[in-house]
Measured scan of single mutants.
Amino acid sequence: AQASVVANQLIPINTYLTLVMMRSEVVTPVGIPAEDIPRLVSMQVNRAVPLGTTLMPDMVKGYA
């Protein structure tokens, strides 16, 4: 199964992502692939992302 990117903490709206904020986990539904974690660093979330939430492409500015 493919691992997705999951929030490792509460990520406030407009926060620039860093490695410590994200982890990879096999979840349903599938979100942003874990292999894209390096690409996500320094990208901004466009909403608050609670701890344990799967990151979806529409949550990250400029990802989709």
Results as ranks from 00 to 15, higher is better:
Val27Phe: 02
Ala34Gly: 12
Thr15Gly: 09
Pro29Ser: 06
Pro12Phe: 09
Ile11Val: 14
Gly52Lys: 06
Met59Glu: 03
Thr54Glu: 02
Leu55Ser: 00
Met22Ala: 00
Ala3Trp: 08
Glu25Thr: 06
Lys61Ser: 15
Val60Thr: 02
Val5Asp: 01
Val41Gln: 11
Leu17Asn: 00
Val5Pro: 02
Val60Gly: 01
Pro29Arg: 03
Thr28Lys: 03
Met59Gly: 04
Val27Trp: 03
Val30Leu: 11
Ala64Asn: 10
Met56Val: 13
Pro12Lys: 07
Asn8Glu: 10
Pro57Asn: 06
Arg39Glu: 04
Arg47Ser: 10
Glu35Val: 11
Met21Pro: 00
Val30Ala: 08
Ile32Cys: 03
Ser42Leu: 13
Gly52Glu: 10
Ala34Cys: 04
Val45Gly: 01
Leu19Asn: 06
Arg39Tyr: 15
Arg23Ser: 05
Gly62Cys: 05
Asn14Gly: 13
Val27His: 05
Met43Asn: 06
Ser42Thr: 09
Val5Gly: 02
Asn8Gly: 09
Met56Ser: 12
Leu51Cys: 03
Pro38His: 15
Ile32Thr: 02
Val41Met: 09
Val6Trp: 02
Gly52Val: 02
Gln2Glu: 15
Val6Gln: 05
Val27Arg: 07
Pro33Asp: 12
Val27Tyr: 02
Ala1Lys: 03
Gln44Lys: 07
Asp36Asn: 12
Met21His: 15
Val5Ser: 04
Ala48Gln: 14
Ile11Asn: 00
Leu17His: 00
Ala64Ser: 12
Gly52Arg: 07
Val41Ser: 08
Met43Tyr: 13
Thr54Pro: 07
Pro12Arg: 07
Met59Cys: 03
Arg47Ile: 08
Leu10His: 14
Val30Ile: 14
Asp36Cys: 06
Thr28Ala: 07
Pro57Arg: 13
Asn8Lys: 12
Asn46Pro: 03
Gln2Arg: 03
Leu10Tyr: 15
Glu35Phe: 06
Val5Asn: 01
Asp36Tyr: 08
Ala1Met: 11
Pro29His: 06
Pro29Thr: 12
Pro33Lys: 10
Leu55Val: 11
Pro50Glu: 15
Ala64Val: 06
Glu25Phe: 04
Val45Asp: 00
Pro12Met: 10
Leu51Gly: 11
Ala1Asp: 15
Asp36Trp: 12
Asp36Lys: 07
Pro57Gly: 08
Thr28Arg: 03
Val6Leu: 12
Gly31Ser: 03
Met43Leu: 10
Gln2Leu: 10
Val45Leu: 08
Val6Glu: 01
Val27Asp: 02
Glu35Ile: 06
Leu19Trp: 14
Leu51Met: 13
Val49Gly: 00
Val20Ser: 15
Gly52Thr: 03
Asp58Phe: 12
Leu40His: 00
Tyr63Pro: 05
Met21Asn: 05
Leu55Arg: 00
Pro50Ser: 13
Thr28Pro: 02
Gly52Gln: 09
Met21Trp: 03
Asn14Glu: 13
Thr18Phe: 04
Gly62Glu: 13
Asn14Gln: 10
Leu17Met: 13
Ile37Val: 10
Ser42Arg: 07
Pro50Tyr: 11
Asn8Phe: 07
Glu25Ala: 09
Thr53Gly: 11
Pro12Cys: 04
Gly31Lys: 00
Ala64Met: 10
Thr54Trp: 02
Arg23Asn: 04
Arg39Met: 10
Ile32Gln: 00
Ser4Gly: 04
Gln44Cys: 03
Gln44Tyr: 11
Leu10Thr: 10
Leu40Ala: 01
Thr53Ala: 12
Pro50Ile: 07
Val6Asn: 02
Met21Lys: 08
Leu17Glu: 00
Met59Leu: 05
Val30Tyr: 15
Asp58Thr: 14
Glu35Gln: 09
Gln9Arg: 08
Gly62Ser: 10
Gly31Glu: 01
Gln9Tyr: 14
Met21Gln: 09
Val20Phe: 15
Thr54Cys: 03
Tyr63Trp: 13
Val27Met: 06
Val45Ala: 07
Val45Ile: 13
Leu10Cys: 14
Gln9Trp: 10
Ala1Tyr: 09
Val30Pro: 10
Lys61Phe: 09
Ser24Ile: 15
Val60Tyr: 01
Met56Tyr: 07
Arg23Tyr: 15
Pro57Phe: 07
Thr53Gln: 13
Gln44Pro: 05
Met22Lys: 00
Lys61Ile: 14
Ala34Arg: 04
Gly62Asp: 07
Asn46Lys: 09
Ser42Ala: 12
Ile37Tyr: 02
Pro29Gly: 04
Val27Leu: 12
Val60Leu: 14
Leu55Asp: 01
Val30Lys: 04
Asp58Gln: 11
Arg23Met: 05
Arg47Ala: 09
Leu19Thr: 15
Leu40Gln: 01
Pro38Val: 07
Leu10Met: 13
Ala34Lys: 10
Gln2Gly: 14
Pro57Ala: 15
Thr15Ile: 05
Ile32Lys: 01
Arg47Phe: 08
Val41Ala: 06
Glu35Asn: 06
Gln9Ile: 14
Lys61His: 10
Glu35Thr: 09
Pro12Ala: 13
Gly52His: 07
Gly62Trp: 09
Ile13Phe: 12
Val26Asp: 15
Met21Phe: 10
Val41Lys: 05
Met43Trp: 08
Ala1Gly: 15
Pro29Leu: 09
Val30Met: 09
Ala1His: 06
Gln9Met: 15
Met21Glu: 02
Thr15His: 06
Ser24Arg: 07
Leu51Val: 08
Ala34Leu: 05
Ala34His: 11
Asn8Ile: 05
Val26Tyr: 13
Glu25Arg: 04
Ala1Arg: 02
Leu17Gln: 00
Met43Phe: 13
Leu51Asn: 09
Ala48Phe: 13
Ile13Tyr: 12
Leu55Ile: 13
Arg23Trp: 04
Gly31Asn: 01
Ile13Thr: 11
Met59His: 12
Met21Tyr: 14
Thr53Ile: 14
Glu25Gln: 10
Pro29Met: 08
Val49Lys: 00
Gly52Phe: 14
Pro33Tyr: 06
Ala48His: 06
Gln2Ala: 13
Val41Glu: 13
Gln9His: 08
Val26Leu: 14
Arg23His: 04
Thr53Ser: 13
Thr28Tyr: 07
Asn46Glu: 12
Thr18His: 13
Pro12Asp: 11
Ala48Lys: 11
Ile13Met: 12
Glu25Met: 07
Val6Ser: 03
Ile32His: 01
Arg47Gly: 06
Gln44Leu: 11
Ser42Gln: 13
Asn14Met: 13
Thr18Pro: 00
Ala48Asn: 10
Pro12Val: 05
Val20His: 15
Met22Val: 08
Lys61Gly: 08
Asp58Pro: 09
Ala1Glu: 15
Pro38Lys: 10
Tyr16Ala: 15
Thr18Lys: 03
Leu10Glu: 15
Ala7Cys: 03
Leu19Arg: 06
Met43Val: 05
Ile11Ser: 02
Glu25Asp: 14
Ile37Asp: 00
Asn14Asp: 13
Arg39Lys: 11
Val6Met: 06
Gly52Asn: 12
Pro38Leu: 06
Asp36Pro: 00
Ala48Val: 11
Leu19Asp: 03
Pro29Phe: 04
Leu40Gly: 01
Gln44Glu: 12
